[in-house]
């Protein structure tokens, strides 16, 4: 039966071909492959380590950053409060000055007003004296001449 007879030639051929394959793989092909695979494994391990280091550094930098930001915030708060105080002081000064000026202005304006009033009064007296003189001339029928008349007129005006 052909199916179950052993063929020694074929068996030897199998050994030879398997041996050739094994030898070439063992001698020439697998070592470079394993070397390059190992290189990559090492590279990956290294890069994982590097990544850890970088993470640590990143964390440090982040904490530093937050500290710096907090400091800056505090300083900014201080500066703002100082400037607010200064601004209030300046404001108060300005208000005081303005009040003083206002008072001075009010006083001056009062003085001016009184002066004007006196002037107006004097004018009014004069006009009144003249008016009385004319009225009395018409009543008496003669005109006032001389110093006498003027004195009289003034007296009249004062009595009025």
């Amino acid at each position: 039966m052909e199916l179950f007879t052993l063929d020694p030639g074929l068996a030897i051929w199998t050994w030879i071909s398997f041996g050739i394959l094994f030898f070439i793989l063992w001698k020439y092909l697998l070592p470079p492959l394993m070397v390059s695979m190992k290189k990559r494994e090492l590279f990956i391990a290294e890069s994982i380590d590097n990544a850890d280091e970088i993470k640590k550094r990143l964390n440090d930098i982040k904490t530093e950053q937050t500290e710096i930001i907090e400091k800056a915030k505090q300083e900014a708060d201080k500066i703002i409060s100082k400037s607010r105080e200064d601004a209030e002081i300046v404001k108060k000064k300005l208000i005081k000055n303005a009040e003083k000026d206002a008072l001075v202005l009010i006083a001056q304006s009062k003085i001016n007003a009184e002066e004007e009033r006196e002037l107006l009064l004097q004018k009014l007296q004069k006009e009144l004296g003249i008016f009385i003189c004319e009225a009395s001339e018409k009543i008496i029928g003669t005109s006032f001449t001389g110093e006498m008349d003027r004195i009289l007129a003034e007296k009249m005006a004062e009595t009025l």
Binding site: D7, G9, L10, W13, T14, S17, F18, I20, L21, I24, L25, L29, P32, L33, S36, K39, R40, F43
Partner: peptide
């Protein structure tokens, strides 16, 4: 025999595959 031919052909194919694979193997 025919089976011997097939064995030879298959190791020939494997060696071609592996030679090309190892030669082109890179990162």
């Amino acid at each position: 025999s025919e089976h011997m031919f097939m064995l030879g052909l298959s190791i020939f194919l494997i060696l071609i595959l592996f030679f090309r694979g190892v030669k082109k193997h890179s990162f």
